[in-house]
Amino acid sequence: MTRVLAAERTIGRTVRDPVREVTEFTLDNNRVRVAVWNYGATLVSVVVPDLAGARRNVVIRLPDLAAYEAAENRAYVGSTMGRFARIVAGGRLVIDGREYELARNAGPHHIHGGPEGFDARVWDGHADSGEKSGRVVLTLVSPDGDQGYPGELIATTTYELDIHNRLTIEFTATTDAPTLCGLSNHAFWNLGSEPRIDGHELQLHARRVLAGYTDFVPSGRTVPVDDTELDFSYPHVLQRVRIDAFLALDSGHPVAKLHDPESGRLLVVDTDQPGMAVYTGDFLPVRPRAGICLQPCAWPDAPNHAGFPSAVLRPGETYRSRTTFELLADQRR
């Protein structure tokens, strides 16, 4: 097959929005098959062969739509988080000297877009087949004041699968007033057949980590990872390794490689984002350590630290974020 075929089917309606249908969009290049829901612009499955040709879903998937809707033990599995993935300490946002109070959903803090973030919305969408790649394009309009954020934001999430087994997730957004914007996907990856990721090998190109990080709130400093448990400059087996950290990424090469020796599957991650949250899923409600989250995004609590890369989006600008997940089955790489 030299084409990537797109299809769609209706899977139901949500309690929050009983009028609009939730649709599953699929992209298939005859080797990799990707499924995306317009509820939360969520990546629900990525079916990939191993070295023997056996196909398996390599992202964590919840059992049904109701499980994705549940607010209790919310894990944002596979979802698009916005307007701002990660935390805003105290829910306090100051732009151009004006203070805004964001909705709090993590004690005194605002996290992952708030209690009714982008992961809990039904997006508009369509899917297109193509000769070299297929695409699922999802759009959401977030009104002025949504979860406390200023300005109307028009956000787009695009999932693109090409004939070379590369899945690219691209976010774009525009606004009519200065606002905070930092979208990201929250998929958990498990490349093997085991229920836990302990046998996986992880390599990261990140020489510094955000310090502090108490309750996901950074202190404002970065420190080297050299000679620490977060030094993944060469592949480490994840057994007995617990990670829940935010790393400042090096530029110029793929930022992460995840390999499962048992299946031979290899995931290579490249991004234009300045940092990445890495979480080994130790408290996943589905099953502890069922998958690892590799989440490129803006730095947490960016608006409250002058030295962090800015996450402010202004009228006339277009927010862009692009991450590619290359899916391989080759032990030699």
Rank of each mutant, 00 (worst) to 15 (best):
D270R: 14
I243N: 04
P288D: 06
R265Q: 06
S321D: 11
S321F: 10
T323D: 06
L267R: 01
R322N: 07
G281P: 09
P309D: 04
G281C: 11
A290S: 14
Y279T: 04
P254F: 07
D244C: 09
G252S: 11
F246S: 03
V269P: 04
I243C: 08
S321A: 15
V286F: 02
T323G: 12
P288S: 14
G264R: 01
D301K: 08
P254T: 04
V241T: 12
P274W: 06
A290H: 06
V278C: 01
L284S: 15
L313V: 14
A245G: 04
A302F: 06
S310P: 10
I292N: 01
V269M: 08
V268D: 00
T324K: 04
V268H: 05
A290E: 10
W299Q: 05
R242K: 15
L266K: 01
F308S: 10
L313F: 15
H305R: 01
V241K: 15
P288F: 10
R242N: 10
L294G: 03
L266Y: 00
D250T: 05
L266M: 00
D260I: 00
H305A: 04
S321V: 07
V255Y: 01
G264M: 02
I292L: 09
W299I: 06
G316Q: 08
V268R: 05
T318E: 13
P285R: 12
Y279F: 15
L247F: 05
A311H: 12
E317P: 10
P309H: 02
P300L: 02
D282P: 04
V312C: 08
R265N: 07
V241D: 12
A245Y: 13
H253L: 15
A248P: 07
T318H: 09
F246H: 08
R314T: 09
A302E: 05
G281R: 08
L266P: 00
P296A: 07
S310H: 10
A298E: 12
Y319W: 04
V268P: 02
A306F: 09
L267G: 03
L258I: 09
P254Y: 11
A302R: 02
P288K: 15
R242E: 06
E317G: 08
R322Q: 13
D272W: 06
G264I: 03
R314S: 09
R314P: 11
A302L: 05
E262N: 03
G307N: 14
P303C: 03
D270C: 08
L247D: 00
Y319H: 08
V312P: 09
A248Q: 08
R289V: 05
G252I: 12
R287C: 04
V268A: 01
G264E: 03
T324W: 06
L249I: 10
T323R: 04
W299S: 02
D260L: 00
F246T: 06
T271D: 13
T323K: 01
Q273Y: 12
V268K: 02
M276C: 07
A290F: 00
V286K: 05
T318F: 06
P303A: 02
T280R: 14
L313E: 13
A277L: 13
G281D: 11
V269K: 02
F308K: 02
P254M: 05
A277H: 13
I243V: 14
A311D: 10
H305T: 04
A290L: 04
Q295R: 05
H305W: 13
V278L: 03
G264H: 03
